[in-house]
Every structure is written in structure tokens, then in C-alpha cells.
Amino acid sequence: MNLVDWDFAVTVGSRVAGPGPDVTPEEAAAAVVELREGAERSTPLVRDFTGLHAEAGTAPVLVVDRTGWLRANADGFSKILSPVVDRLIEKKGPPSAFAEAVGTRVTGAEVGLMLGFLSSKVLGQFDPFHDPYGRLLLVAPNIVHVEREIGADPTDFRLWVCLHEETHRVQFTANPWLGSHLLAQMHAVADTIEPSALLDGLRRGAEVLRGGNASVLDLVSTPEQKEILDRVTGVMSLLEGHADVVMDGVGPTVIPSVAEIRTKFNQRRKGAGSLDKLLRRLLGLDAKMAQYRDGAVFVRHVVDKVGMEEFNAVWSGPETLPSKAEISDPDAWVARVL
């Protein structure tokens, strides 16, 4: 049984996303080659800067279009939601074939609307839940669109994006427990939400994209759910902040225009219709992206205070990860862990 018709979600999402910027076949081929080379080039750069050792070539690098990103994420979400499906069957039994067909079609349309919007914004993503070692996705149309929009040097911008996403690959590959821990937290959240409430949340998310004021986080109301969400927020803040620190730290040695890129990219994040604003509205948490920025502040503060080698104690296990509160108070983390 499925809660969502994932194939239909991809179909709807692809229509919402559109094809991306106009490029010639030669430009498209050159972008694919340069992104693959950038990902490969990033591996030793990230290793040398972070001190984290992740075997090269373990996760495939996929340069995809928007539909490719949609399919990958539909596959990932179907795995994450599988515990909810199992719980639904345990509590209510399987629905009739007709009810399942109609219900999954409706939720497929709602999920497709959300994923389609996101697929036109995301530049890259490391999927740690893809067997056996994850996979690195680079969304070529979106990268080309942004580099044109901010007037960045294409070679510099593509390597800059690759550094960020390669850092995520290294985080999970050098620390194999991390993906399992994050997946367990997601399953824990899913297990506390009633299936009917989850379906309502999907519809609320679509309503937000149509201009409504609903919030998917309305589903997270119990102390147990909030505690889990705080743990996930702490982990995501760390991962995103660490990747930002690495891409900007490595950047000056290999990317001549990195300072200009960062300035223009940050200005773009503030623009109308940006991923920043979408996440704030969709998640009902205005501080979400601010927390990601706080992650970079956390990493820089700890590294400046104790050095990168001591900072890497953060990757020892779940117990050494910063809490949401410690992200805003890095000295508290240093006192507790170091």
C-alpha cells in the first residue's frame, strides 16, 4: 500500500518545474562535464580542509535535470514514509482498491506540487539514504540558471556548488552512523503522527504554495515530537553550516571569484520567490534558514577556539552532535563534549 502515487507526483512536479533555462546541446554537455570534474576535484580539497577521510568514488555523482531530481526525491520520501504506511495498515487495515487509488492520486498531486516547486530551486543534494553509499545529485539546469542570474563565472560557480555538496558526501561517508541516525529521527517523527494528520499536512503544504497561511509544523505539537524535531534541527544546522564553512574556506585557494559569488548568492537568497522564503512559509518556521546560518557560526566559533581536529569530535556519534540550543551556544557544546 502507498499513501502517495509517486509516479503521478513526479508527473505533476515535472509540469510545475518546467525545463529550465535555454541552453544549446553543446552548453548542456559542457556543464555536465564540468560538474562531474568539479565533484571529483572537490574530494581531496574537502578532505584536506576538514581532516575527514571518505573513500572517493563510493557514491555515484549524478548530473540530473529537474525531473531526475524529482524522481530521486520521490524514491527517498517513499522510503521515509514506509513506517507511516505500516502503521496505517496496523490501525485501520488496508483500504479498498478504489479508495487507495483515489487517495494516492490526490496526495500525489499535492506532493508533486511541492516537489515541483523545490526542483526548480535546488542546486545540489547528497542523498544519504540511497543504497549502499548514497548518491550525489547536481541539478544542472538550476546551477546554470543561478550562475546566469547573478553573473557568476560559470567555472567558479560550478566548483563552489560542488564543494558544498561534496562536503555533505564526506560528512555521511566518513561517518557511516550519521545516515542511520538521521533516518531514525525521521522515522521517529513519522511514527508519532497520525496518518490522517499527515495527509492533512500534505494538503496544507500545497495550500501554502497557493498563497495560504497554513503550516506543516502544525502537525508537530506534542513534547515528544518537538524534542525529536529539535534534534533534527540541530543536526541539519550542523551539516549545512559545516558545508558553508568548507566551501568558503576552500574557495579562496581554487576559486578566484569566491567572495563575489558569496555576496551575490546571499543577496539572491533574500529575493522574492527564493527557496529561503518557501521554506519559511512551508515549514512555518521563519528561523529555519537562520538556523542554517547559525550552524556556520557554530562551526567557525568552535574551530577558531579549539581547531579543526578537536572540532571533529562532533562526528564521534549521536551523543556528540550539538543540540538545537548548543548551535546557538557553541561554548556550551565545547564544555559538554571537549
Rank of each mutant, 00 (worst) to 15 (best):
L3T: 08
D5M: 02
D5P: 06
F8C: 03
A9R: 01
T11C: 07
V16N: 13
A17W: 02
P21H: 09
E26W: 06
A30C: 08
V33T: 10
E34I: 14
G38H: 05
A39H: 02
V46A: 06
V46D: 00
D48M: 05
F49T: 02
T50G: 00
T50L: 01
H53V: 14
P60W: 15
P60A: 03
V61A: 01
L62P: 00
L62K: 14
V63P: 11
G68K: 03
R71W: 12
A72I: 07
D75C: 00
S82A: 13
V84P: 00
K91P: 02
P95T: 06
P95D: 11
F98R: 09
G103T: 02
G108E: 00
V111N: 01
S119R: 07
V122G: 05
F126R: 12
P132Q: 08
V139N: 00
P141V: 03
V144D: 10
H145D: 12
E147P: 04
D156A: 09
D156C: 04
R158Q: 10
W160A: 03
L163K: 09
R169E: 15
Q171I: 03
F172G: 04
T173P: 12
N175D: 06
W177D: 05
S180C: 06
H181R: 02
H181D: 06
H181E: 05
L182I: 08
L183I: 06
A188T: 08
A188Y: 04
A190C: 01
A190W: 02
E194H: 01
P195I: 02
L199G: 09
L199N: 11
D200S: 14
G205K: 04
A206I: 06
E207W: 12
R210N: 04
G212R: 05
S215W: 00
L217F: 05
D218V: 03
L219M: 04
V220T: 03
T233D: 10
S237Y: 08
A243E: 07
D244P: 03
V250P: 00
P252R: 05
V254Q: 04
V254N: 09
P256T: 11
A259W: 12
F265P: 03
R268D: 10
G271V: 12
L279E: 13
R281A: 11
R281H: 07
L282W: 00
L285P: 02
D286I: 11
A287Y: 15
A287L: 14
A287C: 13
Y292D: 05
D294A: 15
V297N: 08
H301A: 13
D304T: 07
G307C: 04
G307T: 03
M308H: 14
M308I: 07
E310K: 09
L321Q: 06
K324I: 10
I327F: 02
I327E: 08
I327V: 09
P330S: 09
A332L: 01
R336A: 01
